[in-house]
């Protein structure tokens, strides 16, 4: 998969910034998407194209457990978030939705906004076509991979348990 990078290099970008609580009286992806990242970058929704990537620093998605953060990003067109590290509940929510959260320590220091990236999920390789660089990450395996493959936890459960 290929797409453009949108960098928010700060550490600890929290779910209040990804989708402010004033919009939590809604839960449809399309509605939430209009306000994705609003408090960190009011122009975000205009900048992002379907299939693009967010690049971030450490502890991305910390704070509230609101899954609305994942839905807002996905609804806005984000294909994956690639961060140095993720906060726990946000990461879980990504896996549970079959949404790609790729942990790649150091990525925030190597990629700039506008860079074109190509991601190989199987091999754990990110190619930076703009800079000609290559970064590696631990491919997602095991249970998390199965859940993502099923398209999320509920599909996984519906297929397996019930």
């Amino acid at each position: 998969m290929t797409g453009k990078a949108h960098c928010y290099k700060r550490d600890h970008i929290n779910t209040d910034e990804i989708i402010p609580a004033r919009y939590l009286n809604m839960d449809r992806e399309a509605d939430l998407a209009q306000h994705a990242m609003e408090d960190i970058d009011p122009e975000f929704v205009k900048k992002i194209n379907q299939g693009d990537f967010i690049i971030a620093g450490e502890d991305f998605g910390c704070g509230s457990s609101r899954e609305h953060a994942v839905w807002a990003l996905r609804g806005a067109g984000v294909r994956a978030v690639i961060a140095d590290t993720f906060a726990r509940i946000f990461y879980r929510n990504c896996v549970n939705n079959g949404f790609l959260a790729i942990e790649c320590p150091g990525i925030s220091q190597q990629v700039d906004s506008g860079d074109e990236l190509e991601i190989d999920i199987e091999k754990g390789i990110i190619k930076n076509r703009t800079k000609g660089d290559q970064y590696t990450f631990q491919p997602i395996t095991g249970f998390a991979r199965e859940v993502i493959g099923a398209g999320g936890l509920l599909n996984y459960i519906a297929g397996k348990v019930v």
């Binding site: 839960d27 704070g63 509230s64 457990s65 899954e67 509940i89 929510n93 939705n97 936890l153 459960i157």
Partner: peptide, 27 residues
């Protein structure tokens, strides 16, 4: 996320998202 509060009474208590909640309700 603040479900961790209840560990104060010696329980295992943790915050989850809506999909986790749905899965727990179902199973």
């Amino acid at each position: 996320s603040h479900t961790c509060t209840h560990g104060a009474l010696g329980a295992f208590s943790t915050g989850i998202g809506s999909t986790d909640l749905a899965a727990t309700l179902a199973t």
